[in-house]
Amino acid sequence: MSEQKLILVVDDDPDLVEAVSMKLETKNFRVAKAYDGVEAMDRIKEEKPALVILDVMMPRKNGWDVCEEIKNDPNLKDIAVVLLTAVADSVKTTSYTHHDGKTTLADDYIPKPIDLDELMEIVNDHCS
């Protein structure tokens, strides 16, 4: 029986972390959670997950910086990083934006609002 892979979900929206975690657990992954960039780096160094699902706009340290730290560290650089890219506006309509994730060091990206099934496909691609 293959070992359950550990995935770290990082977002400053705790409800989104729960939603993504629940989905991952139903797909038989182990899940760790972090709610900002500093906490994410601590968990990454401690637990060496197979993959990090990483929000971009977060308190204390943003996702771009976390991604850069992971990919520039020889001990961590093999950890796959999937960026969640969005900027929410506190305006009268829902709005979003996404960066061209391919120009970053991330392995993949998914624009917000995320489609959980699409996210699962990306996770499977990087964890198989």
């Binding site: 400053d12 308190p59 900027v87 309509t93 960066h99």
Partner: peptide, 22 residues
Amino acid sequence: QEIEEDITRFLQKYPETRAFYV
């Protein structure tokens, strides 16, 4: 979280394409 200030600060550092939809 001061959303509007966060967004402004973020976009200054990482210019992005923004799209609005309903």
